[in-house]
């Protein structure tokens, strides 16, 4: 799901030319996915390292940050992650419920440009992972295996002045998402 969401964010927020994206169907809704091998590999490597943290409940947030030319964040798509409570409903019911919620969330991302101001030209992106205490050790193994090292993010990449909070979707599986939009990105 995060992979689909990242592709769609990069398309909707015009970080990359629309020519590299192709329409696909995920969760029964049309989405735009990049067909650029290098970009796709980068996203896959990133998420491959994030996955064990999510599975062990070591990742508090996964944040897709859109940055301007000076590497200041102008938008943050925040995926707050917490373990779902132990559920008594059947896995089939849960799966279809989660699928419906993911579909709704994908649709929200598709139309989020309506509530966001335009980004300045020349933006790039990064993915930040907010880890819980003692989480980094779990990531160390996978980043060595994948030869995809992670470092502590710089303050300037993390700090955003007076962000405007735009809630997107709260799911009953406790995955909460919102966008931070920088108010003066065009100044």
């Amino acid at each position: 799901f995060l992979e689909v969401a990242i592709h769609l964010i990069l398309y909707v927020r015009e970080v990359y030319p629309s020519g590299i994206f192709q329409k696909r169907k995920k969760y029964n809704v049309p989405v735009q996915m990049s067909c650029h091998p290098e970009l796709n590999q980068y996203i896959q490597d990133t998420l491959h390292c994030v996955k064990p943290l999510i599975e062990k409940n070591d990742a508090e947030k996964v944040v897709v940050v859109i940055m301007d030319k000076e590497h200041h964040p102008v938008e943050r798509f925040v995926f707050e992650i917490s373990q779902p409570p132990l559920l008594s409903i059947s896995s089939d019911t849960l799966l279809s419920h989660v699928e419906q919620l993911l579909r709704a969330f994908i649709l929200k991302i598709s139309v989020c440009d309506a509530v966001l101001s335009n980004n300045p030209p020349g933006c790039s992106f990064t993915v930040l992972v907010h880890t819980r205490e003692a989480a980094t050790r779990n990531m160390e193994k996978v980043q060595v295996i994948k030869d995809f090292p992670w470092i502590v993010a710089d303050e300037q990449e993390v700090h955003m002045q007076e962000p405007r909070l735009i809630p997107l979707k709260t799911m009953t599986s406790d995955i909460v998402k919102y966008i931070h939009d920088c108010i003066d990105k065009e100044s």
Partner: peptide, 27 residues
């Protein structure tokens, strides 16, 4: 090390818009 909560990012940057555009022109 590796004890506390951190905000981590990949060391490598994703391909830039310019890099992607230049590979598109090569095709």
């Amino acid at each position: 090390g590796g004890g506390g909560a951190h905000i981590l990012k990949p060391l490598m940057s994703p391909p830039s818009r310019e890099e992607i555009l230049s590979t598109l022109l090569d095709l």
